[in-house]
Design a protein around this nucleic acid. Structure first.
Length: 148
DNA sequence: GCGCCGATCATCA
DNA sequence: TGATGATCGGCGC
């Protein structure tokens, strides 16, 4: 298991991973020393649209949560879905989707920031909703500017 | 049009 | 077993 950190604006991203398997991602004020997979730095710099071939350990298994994480992973770069849409896709209730996002062990890889409330408002994000806004703006800008 | 309230269900303590 | 959510939709005003 390797550990690393990189910057995203005022926040840092701490990553626990093992080869292509990513076990945990979290936003922190101070990141641990070490390298992160190149996909993270590329994505956060607006030079990548995804994390392939990295896989999150959260999507394995057959629990409802794993299904939710898989469904969320299929949201394309720059697009959004509502909690209700995800819920319908996996056959559960929107509240459960919110619960799954709140406990998401690997944000970014499972793009929980692309899941917003049904009326278009951002909804919540841990530890800070501003991160969610920043990520959505980043993706929107990059689509518009053609990954400059 | 806006705000309140009840439904709903997988985890965790 | 009961409480708790990063919600949704309908109804009343």
């Amino acid at each position: 298991m390797r550990q690393g950190g990189c910057s995203f604006g005022l926040w840092k991203v701490a990553v626990d991973y093992d080869g292509q398997a990513v076990h945990r991602v979290r936003f922190v004020r101070t990141a641990p020393e070490g390298q992160v997979p190149v996909q993270f730095t590329m994505f956060l710099a607006g030079k990548g649209t995804g994390f392939s071939p990295l896989i999150s350990s959260a999507v394995s298994g057959d629990s409802v949560y794993a299904k939710i994480y898989r469904a969320v992973s299929e949201i394309p770069y720059g697009e959004t879905r509502s909690y209700g849409e995800i819920a319908k896709a996996v056959g559960t209730h929107p509240r459960v989707v919110g619960n799954a996002m709140a406990r998401n062990p690997t944000p970014l890889i499972v793009p929980c920031h692309r899941v917003i409330a049904a009326d278009g408002s951002p909804g919540g994000f841990s530890p800070d909703p501003e991160i969610k806004i920043s990520l959505l703006q980043l993706e929107k800008n990059m689509l518009k500017r053609g990954f400059s």
